[in-house]
Simulated assay, not measured.
Amino acid sequence: MGIFSRFRDIIHSNINAMLDKAEEPEKLIRLMIQEMEETLVELKADCARTMAQAAKIAREHGALAERAGRWGQKAELAVDKGREDLAREALLEKRDIEARADVVAGELAAVEGLVAACRDDIATLEDKLVSAKERQRTLLARHLRATGKKRMREDVSRVDSADALRRFEEFENRIERMEAEAELAGTATSRRPAQGDSLDARFDRLAADDDVERELARIKAKRVG
Rank of each mutant, 00 (worst) to 15 (best):
P193R: 04
I97S: 09
L19D: 09
E98R: 13
A68T: 12
D160C: 14
D46H: 09
T147M: 11
L206Q: 08
A201F: 11
T50A: 05
A182I: 00
D200R: 02
D163W: 10
L216R: 13
R191W: 13
E183I: 00
D210W: 04
L91T: 13
L31C: 00
Q53S: 12
A162D: 14
Q34L: 07
F4D: 05
L139P: 02
L28E: 01
K56H: 12
C47F: 01
L129G: 10
Q136H: 05
R95L: 03
E26L: 02
A78C: 05
L125Q: 11
L92W: 13
R205P: 10
E24K: 04
D209C: 02
K81P: 06
A201Q: 10
E60V: 09
R153I: 10
Q195P: 08
T147E: 14
E181G: 04
R6K: 11
T124F: 12
A101N: 08
S131A: 13
L216W: 11
E66C: 01
V212M: 09
H12G: 13
L144W: 00
K81H: 06
L125E: 11
E89I: 00
G148F: 07
A90N: 08
I15F: 05
A52H: 14
D163A: 15
E172M: 04
E84L: 09
A68V: 04
I175M: 02
D210V: 11
R205A: 05
K220H: 01
S161T: 15
G148W: 11
R174Q: 10
D209L: 05
T124P: 06
V115K: 06
M36Y: 05
E215M: 07
A65Y: 05
R166D: 15
V130H: 11
R49K: 15
A207L: 08
A164G: 12
G186S: 04
D102W: 09
D102P: 04
K44I: 10
M152D: 15
R83H: 14
R214V: 14
E183F: 06
H143M: 07
A75Y: 07
V111P: 08
V79R: 13
K128D: 12
R142C: 05
D155E: 15
G113E: 03
L144S: 00
T187G: 01
L19M: 06
